[in-house]
Design a protein around this nucleic acid. Structure first.
Lengths: 233, 233
DNA sequence: TATTACTGTCATGAAACTGTCACAAAAAGT
DNA sequence: ACTTTTTGTGACAGTTTCATGACAGTAATA
């Protein structure tokens, strides 16, 4: 699952260039021209990082940064500010808003990629590198290994990613589409119902002894991964 | 409640193909060949989304997009542009006019549908995500869970929406029609009395031990969700 | 190249959910 | 007390949604 990076930049050539560089380096770029567009595109598949231009029509990037940092769900998304001036004041303003790093235009692709990787490494080791444990289920992203009650089990790639996603997003219903976006990738065209099949495969794999079904079907809405006992009737 | 999609495309074969694909996927297609036709057909039942061809007789699609975005009532209708060229200039012009997304011809049906769904998902905000508590009733829209006095209970989709509506609109009488509008959706043809049945189902579900009947019947007017002891009339 | 693993899609049957009805019960009106 | 209007309820059939097994195409591996 490639990292999603949201590029907020109003000047088309620069935006295109950045997107190109990102995709050459294995990232997944989402483009936004304005603050409004950015806000719209942030939802659903939350990006792993945001590249935010300093000067934007309709308000400075700092504005957007601040509002993101105030939202529980977007607060943890790292932000790298793109600025044309290495102005000291701007930096201060940016850091107030919780900016994670700066890249001053013009910049080399190498520099950009290096900064991005540095920030991701710094910010998201927990999110993507660290082993997760949940009610006896252990998942180690590095070793790519899963166990339930210390009993190893092997999953196919998709089931692994699906479980990983669920383990990091428990107690919340996700529609089939949201799961597709998050587990399969944003612009993959796959049938909704395919999710069902993979849910089934995952269920089968983790349905060892008596323990509850962690994956709960919420009819008409999607699926939920939960440690709580299934709703009583 | 099918989505209405207006297809503005002058070439009949393409238009018909699109319509076909849309209807296969549960959308409701309205066809228009020219900008004038489109403008005429937009009124009344405002479409939920517009598929707009780039090259149209009598002006480019951007023209139409711009005029739509200037009208208070049509401004919020998302637009997906169909373009034969992945031309940079076109894209920029389109975004100026507030285009929500692009699909470059030729496109696969899957891609088209995926884009449409993505845009609709992005535009239609996912209600309030905040959990509600009212006299021991907890409803969590995110987890899609309901509990009374910490005891989980299972509701069907309609009962869930109905309860959600009531919890966000307590102490106030709603007619059956108002409930239909708010819970079922605006242009749904359903008998008034159907509300009664769902009220009954919801009552049954939340009628645990002794606690009052939260849903009160107001004879001749409708229903009220209230935490107060039922008024003697 | 042969074999194996993995994916996405489909067909099918089961289960859940919905909207309506018909009739009972309750309230309001005469 | 009797009639009329409105609401409560149980039943039911049609529809929608979901679980599941099968299958064929593709990618990975030996």
């Amino acid at each position: 699952m490639n990292r999603q990076i949201l590029v907020v930049e109003d000047e088309a050539p620069i935006r295109e260039m950045i997107t190109f560089v990102l995709e050459q380096n294995g990232f997944n770029a989402i483009e936004a021209e304005t603050i409004e567009q950015a806000q719209a595109k942030i939802k659903e598949p939350y990006p792993d990082l945001i590249l935010l231009d300093w000067m934007l029509p309709g308000g400075t990037g700092v504005k957007l940064a601040k509002s993101l940092k105030q939202n529980e769900y977007t607060r943890s998304i790292p932000i790298i500010m793109l600025t044309a001036r290495a102005d000291e004041d701007d930096k201060v303003k940016g850091f107030d808003a919780g900016i994670d790093d700066y890249v001053t235009k013009p910049f080399s692709p190498k520099e950009l990629i290096a900064r991005i990787k540095a920030v991701i490494r710094r910010v998201a080791p927990t999110a993507l590198e660290e082993a997760i444990e949940f009610h006896g289920i252990k998942l180690d992203p590095v070793a790519h290994r899963v166990s339930i009650n210390d009993e190893n089990l092997d999953l196919g790639p998709t089931e692994f990613r699906l479980l990983h996603f669920f383990l990091t997003h428990t107690e919340r219903v996700y529609s089939r589409e949201q799961l597709l976006d998050n587990v399969w990738g944003t612009n993959v065209y796959v049938e909704d119902r395919t999710v069902d099949v993979h849910i089934r495969r995952l269920r089968k794999a983790i349905s060892g002894q008596g323990h509850e079904d962690f994956i709960q079907t919420v009819r008409g809405s999607g699926y939920r991964f939960s440690g709580k006992i299934k709703d009583r009737v």
